[in-house]
C-alpha cells in the first residue's frame, strides 16, 4: 500500500469538510476521486499534502504516518500536488517555475534529465521558457503545473481538476500525458468533476458525497453503475 487514509476528518474553516474518509492507493495505480462541487475532493488532497491538518484519523504513506507533517516535508517524501487552479507563479518565468518544482533536489544531472523529459512531454513549454507564467493560456498553464510537479520526480502525484476550464480536445491530450506519466512509474490520485473522463482513464475510483465516501470500485464498474450514471454522468 502506497497511501492510506484512515477515517480522516478535516475542517475547512468552520466547515466539517471531511467526515471520516478512508482511501487506499496501491503503487502504480491511477485512482480517481469524483464528486460534486463542495464534496471535499480538494480538501482531501490538501490534507494529504499537509496544507490542512486533520482533526482525527491518519494519513499513512508507505506504512508510515505523515499526519500533521509540514507540506515541504511531505514533498520531500515524494508526494507532489498540482492544485486546483494550477497556481502558476505568475511573475516567474516558465523556467523559474520549473526550477522551483525541483526546489528540494540536489542531483543536478537528474534535474537536467527531468527538465528534458518535461520539455519532450510538453514541447510548447520549451518555446515559452523565458515567458512569465501568467502570460500562458489555460492549457499551457496546466501543462506547466504538471511539469513543475514532475520536476520533483514524485512517487505519488496528486492532480486536482486537470480538466477544469480546458477545451475538450486539450483535456484528452492532457489525460493521455497523465496516462503516460503513470506508465513511466508514477502513482496518481486524480480529483475530477468531469467523472466521464476521470473514470475512463483510471483503474479505480471513489465517489465522494458531502465529505463521505459514498461508493468505491473499479473504474469500469463505476462507469456502468446506475447511481453514478444518474448523478455524475448526466443520464
Amino acid at each position: 500500500m502506497l497511501l492510506k487514509l484512515e477515517n480522516v476528518k478535516t475542517y475547512y474553516g468552520n466547515i466539517r469538510a471531511l467526515k471520516g474518509i478512508s482511501i487506499e492507493i496501491e503503487e502504480g495505480e491511477i485512482v480517481c476521486l469524483i464528486g460534486a462541487n463542495g464534496a471535499g475532493k480538494s480538501t482531501s488532497l490538501m490534507t494529504i499534502s499537509g496544507v490542512l491538518t486533520p482533526v482525527e484519523g491518519e494519513v499513512l504513506y508507505q506504512g508510515q504516518s505523515i499526519t500533521g507533517l509540514r507540506p515541504d516535508k511531505i514533498v520531500q517524501q515524494g508526494i507532489c500536488q498540482v492544485p486546483e487552479g494550477r497556481m502558476i507563479f505568475p511573475l516567474l518565468t516558465v523556467s523559474e517555475n520549473l526550477d522551483l518544482g525541483a526546489y528540494l533536489r540536489k542531483d543536478k544531472n537528474g534535474v537536467k534529465a527531468d527538465l528534458d523529459r518535461v520539455f519532450s512531454l510538453f514541447p510548447v513549454l520549451s518555446d515559452r521558457r523565458g515567458q512569465h507564467g501568467g502570460t500562458l493560456s489555460g492549457g499551457e498553464q496546466q501543462m506547466l503545473a504538471i511539469g513543475r510537479a514532475l520536476m520533483a520526480r514524485p512517487r505519488l502525484l496528486l492532480l486536482d481538476e486537470p480538466s477544469l476550464g480546458l477545451a475538450p480536445i486539450i483535456v484528452d491530450s492532457i489525460f493521455d500525458i497523465i496516462r503516460q506519466i503513470n506508465q513511466d512509474g508514477t502513482t496518481i490520485l486524480l480529483v475530477e468533476q468531469n467523472a466521464q473522463v476521470a473514470l475512463r482513464f483510471s483503474h479505480r475510483g471513489y465517489v465522494l458525497e458531502t465529505g463521505e465516501i459514498a461508493l468505491t470500485g473499479k473504474a469500469s464498474d463505476l462507469l456502468k453503475n446506475e447511481e453514478v450514471r444518474k448523478a455524475y454522468l448526466g443520464e
Partner: peptide
C-alpha cells in the same frame, strides 16, 4: 539564487510555495 526564487515564490503564492517544498 535559489533562495531568491523561493522568496519570490512565497510572495506570489504561499500555498503553492509550500507545495513545491519550500519551508515558507
Amino acid at each position: 539564487t535559489r533562495w531568491g526564487k523561493a522568496m519570490r515564490a512565497v510572495a506570489q503564492n504561499q500555498t503553492m510555495a509550500a507545495l513545491v517544498g519550500i519551508n515558507v
